[in-house]
């Protein structure tokens, strides 16, 4: 009895993970076709179907290397791809900083840090806004910034990974700033004799990371995801309207 051919298209998609969608159906179909041919050759050499499938998939090589190779071949090397990330990312950064400045002008200053590493956040609220909502306007600015960065990156032909990087550039800048503060500030404090106890430092850094990196990072990501999801949602809504 003839054995059914394994579904190599599915197996390729499984191994390529999310990159399969970026690479496109053509690439998946081509790679799967290659594996089908190889599978047939291995069967004709006397391997069992299970062995032939295993051999064919093992022969395929390193899937991560394949993914990187295809990305490099189609979109150029990392340095050639950087403008697709850096230019939209710079716009996202500019809008986020500009937006924050506008909020400050409007009297928004919910977070006060007394010291760069003892920066436990003091909430003052804003315009009668409940305390825990005080960061909401800023986070909203970041959602817009992230969406703008991701959208511009898409216009420049960036893939989904590059769109996420572009949207998250403001967070990466904050990370660099934190690293600079730590590597420059700590030795100064140490030699000055005013270094805080380790536990206090860790708490301060964690709170800094939460309020200045994690929350903003999530807000920027939400913006990027909106750019990913909006076309789909719009299409669906359009489809429903036309059916109605």
């Amino acid at each position: 009895m003839a054995e059914a051919m394994p579904d190599f298209a599915r197996l390729v998609k499984l191994r390529m993970g999310r990159y399969a969608a970026t690479a496109g159906d053509d690439v998946v179909c081509e790679l799967a076709g290659h594996l089908e041919d190889l599978y047939g050759e291995l069967l004709s050499k006397g391997l069992t179907p299970a062995e032939a499938e295993r051999e064919a998939l093992a022969w395929a090589g390193d899937w991560k290397r394949l993914e990187r190779g295809i990305e490099d071949a189609r979109e150029g090397k990392m340095m050639e791809r950087m403008p697709k990330i850096l230019l939209p990312g710079a716009v996202a950064l500019f809008v986020s900083v500009w937006g924050q400045k506008q909020l400050w002008r409007m009297g928004w200053s919910p977070t006060m840090t007394s010291h760069y590493y003892r920066g436990l956040v003091e909430y003052h609220g804003w315009g009668g806004m409940p305390l825990h909502w005080a960061d909401a306007p800023w986070l909203l600015v970041l959602v817009v910034s992230g969406a703008l960065g991701a959208w511009l990156c898409r216009l420049m032909g960036g893939n989904w990974r590059q769109r996420i990087w572009a949207a998250e550039l403001p967070t990466l800048c904050t990370l660099v700033l934190l690293a600079v503060l730590i590597f420059i500030g700590l030795p100064i404090e140490y030699f000055h004799g005013s270094l805080a106890p380790a536990r206090e430092l860790v708490v301060a850094w964690l709170s800094f990371m939460l309020t200045n990196m994690l929350l903003p990072g999530v807000a920027l990501l939400v913006g990027a995801l909106l750019v990913e999801l909006l076309p789909t949602l719009t299409r669906r809504a359009g489809g429903r309207l036309s059916r109605a």
């Binding site: 790679l31 022969w59 090589g61 394949l66 190779g69 189609r74």
Partner: peptide
């Protein structure tokens, strides 16, 4: 050539 060495090369040559 395995998949990881052949196809990136083919796509580059095509590009």
């Amino acid at each position: 050539f395995d998949l990881a060495s052949l196809y990136p090369l083919l796509y580059r040559l095509e590009k």
